[in-house]
C-alpha cells in the first residue's frame, strides 16, 4: 500500500458533497468500474449512473454514494468528481423509490408519445440503479 493519499472532492452543481484525503476511490467509469489511488495517471472520463465508494484516510468503513452520471478528473493526486445528482447510499429509501417506479410504470403504459416514454424509461432506470446502489 502506498504512503500517499488521493485528495478527493465530490461536487454537484449546488453542493459540495465530500472533500477529504482518501486511500482509494472506486468510480463507475463508463466502460466499467475503476479504482483510483495515489499516483493515478492524469485522466478525464465520464461516469455512468452507479456507485461511488470512498475509502477515507484511515477509516475502515467506506462511504458509498449513488451518482447519476458525471465527469471525473484526476490530476496530481487530486480527484475531482463532478456529478449532476448525488445521494448518500445510506439515505436512499428503497421502498419510496419502488413506489415511484410503479407510479412511473403506470404512466408509461398510458402514454404513446415517444419523447415522454423515453424520458420515463430513463427516470425508471435511474431509480432502479439508485436502488441497486443502496445494497
Amino acid at each position: 500500500m502506498s504512503e500517499g493519499l488521493l485528495k478527493t472532492q465530490i461536487i454537484s452543481p449546488d453542493n459540495e458533497v465530500y472533500e477529504g484525503d482518501t486511500d482509494m476511490v472506486v468510480l463507475p467509469g463508463e466502460d466499467g468500474d475503476f479504482a483510483a489511488m495515489y499516483e493515478h495517471a492524469p485522466i478525464i472520463t465520464f461516469l455512468r449512473p452507479g456507485k461511488v465508494e470512498v475509502f477515507s484516510k484511515g477509516e475502515k468503513e467506506k462511504i458509498t454514494f449513488f451518482v447519476a452520471g458525471g465527469f471525473v478528473k484526476i490530476q496530481n493526486n487530486n480527484c475531482l468528481v463532478m456529478v449532476d445528482y448525488i445521494r448518500k447510499s445510506s439515505e436512499i429509501d428503497v421502498k419510496e423509490n419502488e413506489k415511484r417506479i410503479s407510479e412511473l410504470l403506470s404512466k408509461l403504459e398510458k402514454t404513446q408519445d415517444q419523447g415522454i416514454r423515453d424520458n420515463l424509461i430513463m427516470n425508471i432506470d435511474l431509480i432502479r440503479s439508485e436502488n441497486q446502489a443502496s445494497e
Binding site: G29, E30, D31, A41, P42, I43, I44, T45, F46, F71, K73, Q75, N76
Partner: peptide
Amino acid sequence: QNNIDTYFEYEPNEEEVLSKILPK
C-alpha cells in the same frame, strides 16, 4: 497553465469527451 502542461488520458477519446462536455 498546469492543465495544459499535463498530458491527460481521455476515455473513450478526446473528441467524445469534448462533444459531451461542451453542451454540459
